[in-house]
């Protein structure tokens, strides 16, 4: 969470930082079969909100919704082919993020500038396949060393 926030020190992420935590949750649930507990996500979100000064609970709602949609996808077996991972991640991320964005608009009673929002979504979706390739490469190297 803190790493995600500190990425804004890089000039590339000045407008908005990518949502690294959602990528990690997705891979944990889909790839590594690790189920992050709701309580952990709840406190993780609260800590993120306290550090960033956001409205208490907004990040938690995002994380819980994201995990919930990912699990639905896993149990309903929408994702039968591995190549469709990116498309499903895109759908889940955009859907969860839109709910939280609408909630923020209702709370603040004002529509924010949309360019940082689009940048946040875009950079997260670009980063997803890069991290995916990184994980694949890492698992390939470990398997290669083992064999």
């Amino acid at each position: 969470m803190n790493f995600q926030k500190s990425l804004s020190f890089f000039s590339l992420f000045e407008i908005a930082t990518p949502n690294v935590i959602s990528i990690l949750i997705y891979f944990c649930v889909i790839r590594f079969n690790i189920n992050p507990s709701n309580t952990v996500l709840f406190f993780l979100g609260l800590i993120h909100d306290i550090i960033n000064g956001e409205n208490l609970g907004t990040t938690t709602i995002f994380l819980l919704l994201f995990k919930y949609f990912t699990k639905i996808m896993l149990y309903e077996k929408f994702n039968k082919v591995n190549q469709e991972e990116w498309i499903f991640f895109t759908l889940i991320f955009i859907f969860s993020f839109t709910i939280v964005l609408l909630l923020n608009i209702v709370i603040n009673f004002s529509i924010p500038e949309l360019s940082p929002t689009f940048f946040h979504i875009g950079i997260t979706l670009i980063l997803f396949p890069i991290i995916n390739i990184g994980i694949n490469f890492f698992s390939f190297v470990t398997q290669f060393i083992k064999s």
Binding site: K5, S6, L7, S8, F9, E14, I15, A16, T17, I51, N52, G53, E54, N55, T58, V100, L101, N104, P112, P116, T117, H120
Partner: peptide
Amino acid sequence: TAPGGVFA
């Protein structure tokens, strides 16, 4: 902390 964020 670093400034900037989508919501705050």
